[in-house]
Design a protein around this nucleic acid. Structure first.
Length: 516
RNA sequence: GGUGACGUGGCCGAGUGGUCAGGCAGAGGCCUGCAAAGCCUCCUACGGCGGUUCGAAUCCGCCCGUCACCUCCA
């Protein structure tokens, strides 16, 4: 069967286009990563999720993927075009805020980098092939700046080195910000470098020997501009021509506009063919902001601290939500449309993820039993997978894809008894769907991860034992017709967050998936 | 002011000319000692006004509204 055509909306052309890799069946792309000065929030991860889904979709249609995703661990000025020796950057501000926690700026960066990677793994995002850090590529950045100065794409002043926007004819194409006046529209009561030739020019190097992080350069001690790191690291690992670049919509201007100008000036031609931008999300109908109290970092939701009262009590009281439920919730909106993240969506997502897990368990049990009988699922699940993949290939239509995939879960749920043949089809379907969407832990790859049971099941063995004991009591009570006592035991279990289901073959229990 | 996205039922969100999205919530039913879980059934909308068309949520025009960017930001 031939794969559907993978199409993505390209900000550069304002059109949804078939993705045609330069190297046949090998997608090479760069994803703008985080600046590590605080814990990443769910909006950050919506953007990283887009990159993850591009990878998974490309792999599902049989392509190889090389993805580079950076860590920005250099502080950059909050006002990017200004070279203000007394100015503060985001990381410096963070250090002042949290000075007692960290010995120095590098410690702070290390801490937030590690936290970021933890969140990344918790949300089941696939690891990029290369994850370069800006601080490890400063020399490379300097080399590029020298090259740009030598080719008259950049010039030095007393305060730094600037890219000359005039020298890049394509500048403004991506964002539509073509007029110089537009860039002066907002007045800022800060001091600009009087030697800047054009207000649009942006900094490649900032002279500042007192900056917390500084490096030696031909122009003295200082640190690199924000935009140059992505150009340099992208081209270093993916070459002078590669396929695609992802990031949040806010990066369209100035970051990606500047990156294109730098790339094309360094390479002498277009470097990247497709630009994919993820829309900001809203939370409960409003822009996510600390002042509105709807600002959630990933760890606010998956492992909230008990006393953090800005986290909704429903999430806090149960010790955080399933990270995979958060991932699933973020997939309920297409990356390019406005998406309203709500606790309601999160709640629904948690239940759906649980249904996948239950279905996977049933399939495993049926595989073990290996009952005789025809394959009653193969054709139906094959069709469902095709529709799921088609949706993903259609500009990552995750709401449609998850809707299609849920039909597969239903198909499994609806089987009264499952033959070994059906179970094998179901297992194949679950594996493929899971590879494409990353919905649950890989149940069937348990070999490599020893002890997944204790990892994935937060219930300790001793608690499990006492639950079994209570259930046995309750069964005895039910047998004797003492329903009041049986119900009381069920209430006790409920209070422990345990849900009891009386099935024909006996009682079953599981941790309750509840969010309000 | 410039640029770009978008407006679908109580809620979230698919759907680009004619047939059903799907989920959540709600209602009824099956099952159950009662529940829970699951299953079945029901609820049926396209911001407004014009236009094109046999037929418009879908195409065109205008209006209203929302969001984002215009040198901190995913």
């Amino acid at each position: 069967m031939s794969s559907p055509t993978f199409r993505l909306y390209n900000t550069l052309t304002h059109e949804t286009e078939p993705v045609e890799p330069i190297e046949e069946e090998h997608l090479q792309f760069y994803s703008c990563g985080p600046t590590v000065y605080m814990y990443a929030h769910i909006g950050n991860f919506r953007s990283f999720l887009t990159a993850d889904l591009i990878r998974r979709t490309a792999e599902a249609i049989g392509w190889d993927v090389t993805n580079v995703s950076n860590i920005t661990d250099v502080g950059h000025l909050t006002q990017d075009d200004l070279v203000d020796p007394g100015g503060e950057d985001k990381m410096q501000q963070a250090l002042e805020r949290e000075g007692e926690r960290f010995a120095n700026i590098y410690d702070l960066a290390r801490h937030y980098t590690e936290a970021f990677l933890e969140d990344w793994r918790a949300l089941n995002l696939r690891e990029p092939e290369v994850r370069p850090r800006a601080t490890e590529h400063v020399t490379d950045q300097l080399r590029a700046v020298v090259e740009l100065v030598e080719s008259d794409h950049a010039y030095a002043t007393d305060q730094g080195v600037y890219f000359s926007v005039e020298s890049a004819d394509d500048y403004g194409h991506l964002s539509g910000n073509t007029e110089a006046q537009q860039l002066q529209a907002s007045e800022r009561d800060v001091v600009e470098d009087p030697d800047k030739r054009d207000p649009r020019d942006f900094a490649l190097w900032k002279h500042d020997p007192d900056h917390l992080m500084h490096w030696h350069s031909p122009w003295g001690w200082g640190y690199p501009g924000w935009h140059i790191e992505c150009s340099v690291m992208g081209m270093q690992y993916l070459g002078n021509r590669f396929d695609l670049h992802t990031g949040g919509e806010d990066l369209i201007f100035p970051h990606h506009e500047c990156e294109i100008a730098q790339n094309q000036s360094l390479a002498g031609h277009r470097v990247i063919n497709y630009w994919v931008h993820t829309r900001f999300l809203q939370v409960e109908g409003e822009k996510m902001s600390k002042s509105k109290g709807n600002f959630y970092t990933v760890r606010d939701l998956i492992q909230p601290s008990p006393e953090d009262d800005h986290v909704p009590a429903s999430v806090r009281d149960q010790g955080g939500v399933d990270p995979l439920a958060l991932r699933y919730a973020l997939m309920q909106g297409q990356y390019r449309k406005p998406f309203n993240f709500t606790l309601d969506t999160l709640h629904t997502a948690a239940r759906h993820v649980q249904r996948y897990r239950d279905a996977a368990e049933r399939v495993e049990a049926a595989l073990t039993a290996d009952a005789d009988g025809p394959d009653e699922l193969g054709d139906r699940l094959g069709d469902i997978y095709d529709r799921t993949l088609e949706a993903m290939c259609d500009d990552l239509n995750t709401p449609a894809a998850t809707a299609a995939a849920l039909e597969g879960v239903k198909a499994i749920e609806q089987m009264d008894r499952m033959s070994g043949a059906s179970a094998r089809s179901a297992r194949t379907w679950l594996d493929r769907t899971n590879a494409l969407l990353g919905i649950i832990e890989s149940t069937f790859e348990a070999d490599e991860q020893t002890d997944t049971a204790s990892e994935t099941d937060p219930t300790s063995d001793s608690l499990a034992d006492s639950i079994e004991e209570l259930l046995a009591d309750r069964e005895a009570a039910r047998r004797d017709g003492e329903y009041a006592r049986a119900d009381a035991i069920r209430d006790t279990l409920e209070a422990l967050g345990i849900e009891v289901m009386d099935r024909p073959e006996g009682p079953e229990w599981r941790r309750k998936v509840e969010l309000r």
